[in-house]
Every structure is written in structure tokens, then in C-alpha cells.
Simulated scan of single mutants.
Amino acid sequence: MNKITLLLIFNVLVLLSCKSKETFEPRNISKVEVENLVQDSLLNVRALEVVKGKVLFGTSNGEIYVYKPSENSRNLTTLEWMEIDSIKPPNYRALAYAENRVFGLAIESPALLYMNGKLVYKENHPKAFYDSMDFWNDQEGIAIGDPTDTCMSIIITRDGGETWNKLPCGSLPKAIVGEAAFAASDTNIAIVDNHTWVATGGKASRILYSPDKGKSWEVSDTPIVQGKETTGMYSIDFYDELNGFAIGGDYTKPDNNKANKIKTIDGGKTWELVANNENPGYRSCVQYIPNRAGEELVAIGFKGIDYSNDSGNSWKHLSDEGFYTIRFLNDSIAYAAGSGRLARLIFRE
């Protein structure tokens, strides 16, 4: 390849880069409209997914609902929890979807993982407590939970969810005493391509990172508040391989905004505190708004909804409406769930 060809390629890349930057127009969201779609005092929802125009959510009463926005209706899918020896239905805190298969993961012992109503994983350990689940692709998925031994609990499937295997502690970073995770919003795991980040919390709050879909792991410390069972990261999200954000705090002191928001620009190797001693305080879920260049995020919790348009360095409080978890349909519409309801959120400038 001669110098002229290299110069032409360089110029094309520069032009494409400039064009991309020029076409991105920063927004300043000033309000959010909340439209309640499903209201039921018995609902308690922390597991939520938006998939192919449908909204899936799992409840603490062992039910998984499918809400179809185009039909403005919901269809109830009851998973067969009665097939196992349990006196109560599973408390779903995590959901996942892969190629027409819906997965529901329950907390507490016995840990129960269902695929379209079929029990595909059960763990009877008295300390079993799973917090979050996600898939890299239609065949490979991961779920994480609190330690039952000397490491965080991590189970992985490579066959589309038919079988799940727990990773041995010899292949994982050793957990610190009091380190666990929070089943607050099903967002303890962030995946970008083959990269995986797991947020722990409690007396130690760190990042477990795998570059190869769970085959190898390393661990990084974070400056987020930690040291108590109720402190640390409750939620993590990555926009791309480099830019990520985590939020949490202490749900028993939800107005405390000290050291509860952190971000990374190097793929999670290092983390820095942002908006320290500034609101929001405790939040259970944070998500990047899609197609906004990693600049816009929304944080949500039982104390309200907050928005950032500068990669999390500063935040604007949009609403006191309380929810536990949120997922975006596009750059203006999201679905949120919490105690007693599922709602559509519309973000406007």
C-alpha cells in the first residue's frame, strides 16, 4: 500500500469522524411524563426487559407478565413453580430473553432458574441468593449471586439455557468478607460484545471483569461508598467497551449522596467518583440512553428519576415518582417498574 492510498484512507476516516460528531446534537431533557400501564397493589417488580417491542416483567409472586404496547394489553404467563418442592412461588428478581426463550431467576434458597416454565437450574445451598442475569448471545448466558463459598456465585450456560454450570472458586477472584450483590434492579451485570462487568456490593464493592464471556476473570477496586451490608454499587451499565457508569449508595439512607456515583473511561480498569456530595442520592438502577453517544443517562429509584447529559458528571432531578428498575425502548421512551406498577416514561426537552 503506497503513501497516496494511506493518505486517502486517513482523510476518509477524518471526514467520517467529523461528520459523526457534527450530526450528534446534545439534548437537555427537562421533564418526564409518567403513564401508568399496569397497576396492582400486589405487584412488586425488580426484573424487567424490553424485547422486540414487548415488555417482560417478573414479580415477587412468581409470575411473568408480557405487556404488548401495540395492543395496550398484558398476557399472563405462569411458570410451573409447583413442580419443585416449595411452599411458595419464586421471587423473581432477574429476567432474560434469548431466541424465544424467557428465563426467570428467583432469589433465596433453593435458587430456581426457569426457561419457558421448565426448571433448568436448582441450587439448594442455604446461602444461595442470585441477583442478576444476562446473555451474550442466544446460546451463552450468565447469572450472578452472593457467595456460597469463597467467591461470588456465577453460573453460565453455553447451550441456550438448557444446562447451567457453576464456576469453581478456583477460577474466580476471591470474595472479601461481607462482599455480595444486590437484587435491586437486575442490573448488576453489564455486557458489551464479549466483555462482561459484574458489580458487587456490601462491605466491599468491586468490579469483576471478564474479556472472554466468563472464561477468565479479574477484579478491580472502586471508590464507591462501601463497608456496610447495605452500601455499594446497586447498578452498572456500559455504553461501549470503554465507558461505564455505576450507582448505588445506601438504601437505608437514600438522601445521602456522598460517594455513590462512579464512572470509567478505560473499560473498568479505573473508576472515579462523579457528582460527589451532589444529588441524586441512593438509586437502584442506572441506564445509558441509547444512541446518545454515552452522554445521556437516567438513574431511577424509589426516591425519583434523575437525568444527566454530560456522562454522569452532573444530574438534574426530573421527578419524585418512585420505581426500582428501568429499560429504554429508544432514546425518548422507557419502561419502568416498581412497587405496584409498570409505567411508560416519555422524556422531553
Score class of each variant (00 low, 15 high):
Glu108Ile: 06
Asn116Glu: 03
Lys88His: 14
Ala334Thr: 09
Phe323His: 10
Tyr121Phe: 09
Phe182Gly: 09
Ala143Glu: 01
Ser171Trp: 06
Asp159Lys: 13
Ile4Phe: 08
Ser109Met: 05
Tyr67Lys: 03
Glu278Asp: 03
Ala175Tyr: 01
Phe347Ile: 02
Leu7Arg: 13
Gly214Asn: 08
Phe103Pro: 06
Arg344Lys: 14
Ala180Gly: 15
Tyr67Asp: 01
Gly178Pro: 01
Gly312Thr: 11
Ala334Gly: 08
Thr23Lys: 15
Asp134Lys: 09
Thr230Val: 11
Pro173Lys: 06
Thr157Ala: 00
Ser311Pro: 11
Ile144Leu: 06
Ala98Tyr: 02
Ser171Lys: 15
Ile346Pro: 02
Ser210Tyr: 03
Asp221Leu: 14
Ser30Ala: 14
Met82Lys: 15
Gly170Arg: 05
Leu79Met: 13
Ile142Asn: 04
Lys21Val: 12
Asn243Phe: 04
Val32Tyr: 02
Tyr282Glu: 00
Glu321Cys: 14
Lys122Met: 14
Leu167Thr: 04
Asn165Cys: 09
Gly304Met: 01
Leu56Arg: 04
Arg74Gly: 07
Asp266Pro: 13
Gly232Thr: 12
Gly202Ser: 06
Gly267His: 06
Pro89Cys: 04
Asp331Leu: 00
Asp237Gln: 05
Thr187Glu: 00
Ala343Met: 03
Asp186Gly: 07
Phe57Gly: 07
Ser210Asp: 00
Asn165Lys: 15
Glu295His: 11
Ala47Tyr: 08
Ala94Cys: 03
Asp193Trp: 02
Gln139His: 13
Val32Phe: 01
Glu296Ser: 04
Ser20Gly: 12
Asn36Thr: 15
Asp266Cys: 10
Lys174Trp: 00
Val219Cys: 03
Val50Tyr: 10
Glu99Trp: 07
Lys228Cys: 08
Leu105Cys: 05
Thr252Asp: 01
Thr77Leu: 14
Asn44Glu: 05
Ile107Asn: 05
Glu33Pro: 01
Lys269Pro: 07
Pro254Tyr: 04
Trp217Thr: 02
Phe135Arg: 00
Leu95Ile: 13
Gly161Val: 02
Ala175His: 05
Ala199Val: 06
Leu79Asp: 02
Trp136His: 12
Thr230Tyr: 02
Ala336Glu: 02
Ser132Leu: 09
Glu25Ile: 15
Tyr97Pro: 04
Asp266Glu: 02
Ile333Thr: 09
Phe245Ala: 13
Asn124Gly: 12
